[in-house]
Design a protein around this nucleic acid. Structure first.
Lengths: 124, 124
DNA sequence: ATTTTGCTTTACGTTAACGTAAACGTAAGC
DNA sequence: GCTTACGTTTACGTTAACGTAAAGCAAAAT
């Protein structure tokens, strides 16, 4: 008995609206099952939604998130495709490393500003 | 003799269009000087632009970027303001740390997929 | 039995972040 | 003196990512 979710269950869990989830389906980022006309989400669908939202959080567009998610599910079978997939993975890794650097820079700058504030406060 | 920049110089350097820079001014994220009607950008303006774009890269909206940039330039003078500023800084730091975590998770997942691809390739 | 709850589709509206085009000014080069 | 390059303002257009509202079906609760 595999776990399934309704649209509103997932919406609640991830603090988005059902509209958002339907929109993701419309855009081809999700393809839940159907029981009649009603959407039925599997755990795999849930994970995909999680990945989409994670991507969103770190500034990826839905298209970019789809790219990444597709990387995780290689239905790719021949070597040429596998190699192009590896290329894309490397590219995404570089991009993510770059973002980490930017974040670290920002954190440093914030620490500086924080220190200035603190010394200003301690000085009355 | 302090360095100044034209709009197209900055546009070229940061690979954006002049329109983008004007838009940022319109939104209050930049306020370059003027020589007649012509915009004149200082090094400080250049830095601000850099910060805006850095924010963009890691998924901040322009409003969020403005918030962060304003943190760096505390014209804040009284203690209450300084303390609220410190709060905001802490908040942003948390947010950035969170993003780093998400990025690391993604990187791990990508490594997994990469390994799968590689083993699939080595197996013929 | 009927009201409520939750889901569906369809469709128009909205906001952010610019793009694009028009119409004009000005200073430099030929 | 005219063109070319670079700047300006004004204004309408565009795309992504949903919001919102209408109209309807279907199961569950009263």
């Amino acid at each position: 008995m595999t776990t399934v979710y309704s649209i509103s269950e997932l919406a609640q869990e991830f603090k988005v609206t059902p509209r958002t989830i339907r929109f993701y389906e419309e855009k081809g980022l999700l393809s839940p099952g159907r029981k009649g006309s009603v959407r039925v989400f599997s755990s795999a669908d849930r994970i995909r939604l999680k990945l989409i939202l994670r991507g969103k959080l770190i500034g990826f567009s839905l298209d970019e998130s789809r790219d990444i998610i597709d990387l995780y599910e290689p239905e790719t079978t021949n070597n040429r495709q596998l190699e192009s997939l590896l290329d894309k993975i490397s590219e995404k890794q570089l991009q993510l490393e770059q973002q980490k650097k930017e974040i670290n820079t920002m954190l440093k700058d914030l620490k500086k500003t924080e220190a200035i504030c603190l010394s200003a406060l301690s000085q009355r």
